[in-house]
Design a protein around this nucleic acid. Structure first.
Lengths: 358, 358
DNA sequence: GTGAAAGCGCTAACAC
DNA sequence: GTGTTAGCGCTTTCAC
């Protein structure tokens, strides 16, 4: 060590640089090991072979100094990043939380890295845009998009620069690969179960597409399918973003009027909100009124005994990660597909009574 | 536009650069607006004033080109970042998921950005180290650490370079600010409730510190507190990482032997796992055996009617974000504190019977 | 108020 | 197998 230091700090009033591994540069490691920066670089990611002795020396030096490579500089210089970004809607929803976990596990298994951003949970797609930009600003090497609202078109400009996989939400954009829950099938499963139970008058809560593409689809399909069975459907729109209690009052009113014998909710959280309310109002489930949800990932779903559909989160994670890996391997050569993963009906105690006629 | 382009691409076989906003550089915006790069930079973050007309021109140009600033280059050049990193344990746990959401909301409110990384959910603190390094490698401007296992000492080398706030887990490191749930208080609340109910023989499941600092603490305090009430405690260790079912068999054995009238679990997930098992085994709660959990954040916790403590996640998020903001504002000048946020007892239906004598 | 230019820490030709 | 060097896209003195 020693010289070399010269003529540095001409400008930039050479900060005090409190000593910490974070300030250890590749240059420092190189000096410590008595090699050039290039060699250090090669030791770390090099495709080029390096003499074993040199390699060891570099590793030792890095270790000694606690060197933590500056990922920003790396990916800036290489103009490529092996960090995959995940754009995740509401992490407080167990379904998304589970997806996060599973994806992380898969991505790690594949030797990639992942960082996650979530939109501020305030209303609107604007926050999703911001979150998207956060990821793009970081120039991630790939993106998972799992969010209810972002328009596929928003992603369009980036498709040939960064691999994108949409997860969860049913999507049909011809240029975007998607791994989705078969919400059509899920809704059908539930509607069939309700119809088979003999219900003839059913309320269905249907959120706005703007709130959640998946939930909206679920609601619409449920309603339609029920009608296919000759059931009278009472559609209850839920236009407001993020308000899980919306529609409950309407359902209760229909029940009080003796109009319905069952209510279908497009998600478990909504169902739970309803069940709390119903219980407080002295309405028994399913003796007085049957009710169904959708998602099935809540811990304790078995204890709650709700009738719902379990969405295949784990499978989705596995598929999405695999697809991402191949996109990374051969950029632009992957044929766009729209995978649909079927859920499974979780029979529960909240679907009951009306068996015979009305 | 036109010239200037010369003598570029001498090396670096000038990639085809498919056109996308991601390839639009500040240089491009500058040319489009007819100003210099420096000016564009000033328009975006500049403290230096810029002529209104110039400003508008730049904004217009940026808009037109769909310019997305390269955050890596920015923070590399400025050697500072306004991105806060969140190191989050198990996002599939609703308690962590909720924390993620709430923190994101707070951070956005404060005009900061946040990215989240989670360790691969496999055993060990090694993966937590990796996740930590991912954040450090990105040279984040600050860090929230909310993870059960990472040693405070691991963070030590970075403390004077990047502000760190530990969230959730009780922590007493003299140099690390922490905003924690008062697990001591939480455990006490529960133990007192169980004792007050008249239970004299209670099983307590106690995880290893290595699995979860918080859960381990809860278990130990519960046991101790119960003993303070003269209750006979049956400690059941749960040494294995991530196995929520651990200890259930032991509890059931104690119950079968008629030894205990209540069992306390250090988390709601563990309690739920137990309840499923118990129900399957025909054991009624609380008629046959009382049981308590801890966390209280699960959606549907009211319906489940479990006796637990609700941890103040929202408050923790607010405090942590506020502290981070002040640390960012005056680096190194914030007095380290260890805030303790009390939880609230959620009385439920799983704590019952033994009232009178044994 | 604005431009020129020197780096930030690193990668990747290219030469030896 | 290793060193040299020109950038990656941006910020920030410094001069005008």
């Amino acid at each position: 060590m020693g010289s070399g230091e010269a003529a540095r700090s001409r400008r930039r009033s050479s900060k005090p640089q409190s000593q910490s591994p974070l300030n250890v540069t590749m240059m420092a490691v190189a000096e410590e090991a008595g090699v050039s920066r290039a060699t250090v670089s090669r030791v770390f990611h090099g495709t080029t072979p390096v003499a074993p002795s040199t390699r060891d020396a570099v590793h030792a030096a890095a270790e000694r100094l606690g060197y933590i490579p500056n990922e920003m500089a790396r990916s800036l210089a290489a103009s490529s990043s092996d960090i995959i970004g995940l754009l995740l809607r509401g992490p407080s929803n167990p379904a998304y939380g589970l997806l996060f976990s599973e994806l992380q596990a898969e991505i790690s298994r594949l030797g990639l890295q992942m960082i996650t951003v979530a939109p501020s949970p305030m209303e609107g797609a604007n926050f999703e845009r911001q979150a998207l930009n956060r990821l793009l600003g970081l120039r991630v090497g790939g993106m998972f998009v799992s969010t209810g609202v972002i328009q596929a078109e928003m992603l369009e400009p980036f498709l040939d620069v960064v691999p994108v996989v949409i997860i969860g939400r049913p999507e049909n954009h011809p240029r975007i690969y998607s791994v989705s829950y078969d919400e059509n099938g899920n809704a059908t499963l539930l509607a069939d179960a309700v119809a088979a139970q003999g219900h003839r008058d059913v309320a269905v809560v249907i959120p706005n597409v703007g709130s959640s593409v998946a939930e909206s689809l679920r609601g619409r399909v449920m309603a339609q399918r029920l009608e296919g069975h000759g059931v009278t459907v009472h559609r209850i729109p839920s236009p407001t973003f993020g308000v899980v209690k919306e529609g409950i009052a309407e359902v209760m009113a229909l029940y009080d009027a003796g109009t319905i014998t069952a209510a279908m909710f497009p998600s478990d959280v909504r169902l739970l909100a309803f069940l709390s309310h119903a219980r407080a109002a002295g309405v028994r489930t399913p003796e007085d009124l049957s009710a169904t949800g959708c998602d099935g990932v809540l811990p304790g779903v078995d204890l709650l005994g709700i009738t719902t559909v379990r969405i295949p989160v784990e499978q989705a994670a596995v598929r999405a990660a695999a697809v991402m890996q191949s996109m990374l391997a051969k950029p632009g050569r992957i044929k766009v597909e729209h995978e649909l993963l079927p859920g499974t009906l979780l029979p529960g105690r909240t679907l009951g009574p009306p068996r015979g006629g009305r």
